[in-house]
């Protein structure tokens, strides 16, 4: 179970209140899920309805951070570009 914080409305809730929108990719880029830190789009579905960015580890499920669209943070520890 992921405990996610929406950076727009600041609510912290379980993953069922959100909706995963898949990997964070630039247009024309083909990126697939891999073991390690992944950046995804998430929707605050049951809350403010905003899309935001989230970084989590695809194996141990740790969440490293979330950000509003367009304000991408630099690389997290253990993340490869």
């Amino acid at each position: 179970m992921l405990l996610i914080t929406c950076p727009v409305c600041a609510v912290t809730a379980e993953e069922t209140e959100f909706s995963c929108g898949g990997l964070h990719v630039q247009p024309g880029e083909t990126r697939r899920y891999a073991r390690g830190v992944v950046r995804e789009y998430w929707l605050c579905a049951a809350g403010c309805g905003s899309w935001f960015g989230l970084a989590r580890h695809s194996v141990n499920q740790r969440i490293l951070g979330s950000w509003t669209m367009g304000k991408e943070p630099p690389l997290f520890p253990g993340e490869t570009a």
Binding site: M1, S58, Q61
Partner: peptide, 13 residues
Amino acid sequence: DKAPGYSRRGAFA
């Protein structure tokens, strides 16, 4: 599960 990943734990939901 609702979110992809390689964890073999599975979500409570």
